[in-house]
Amino acid sequence: MKKEEVREETTQLVVFKLGEEEFGVNILQVREIEKLDQGLTRVPKAPHFVEGVINLRGEIIPIVDLRKRFGLTLPPLGLDSRVIIVEVGEEAVGMLVDAVVEVLRVPVSAIESAPSITKGVNSYYLAGVAKIEERLIVLLNLERALSPEEAEELSKAELG
């Protein structure tokens, strides 16, 4: 019996916090996690959730404030805040989050599809929720969450 359990298909998540809520992204999409200790260059006329760009060893990476992205009203970033550099398609994008919690291995069977609005985030941006014991980790669909076109269309739709 035990062996079968081990063989069960699992996936690894990088778990992070926006406010007090826990979110996760697949570790395969995460390139690295950085502290935002260097200067950030603001980009005029960029979408409002783009904080700016940073120089990551010669590569210019846009930084997205996920809280603004999802329209969450939260206190300012604290000392634990981090940038998770993820790869979406060919592009590297930095996600600004309140804290990175851990890397967690979860069985695929624990992942369910997300209800229409989960923790204040539109399910369109979500890949599902992972229920592990008492925790509820919201999984992001990065292709959607980090696509500027989607954001534009969605905000238009909301306005209209």
Binding site: V43, P44, K45, A46, V50, V53, E59, I60, I61, P62, V88, G89, E90, E91, A92, V93, L146, P148
Partner: peptide, 14 residues
């Protein structure tokens, strides 16, 4: 010159 990347795309004036 470095590109701002496809995520930010073409921003007028930059």
């Amino acid at each position: 010159i470095k590109s701002l990347g496809g995520f930010l795309g073409d921003i007028p004036g930059i």
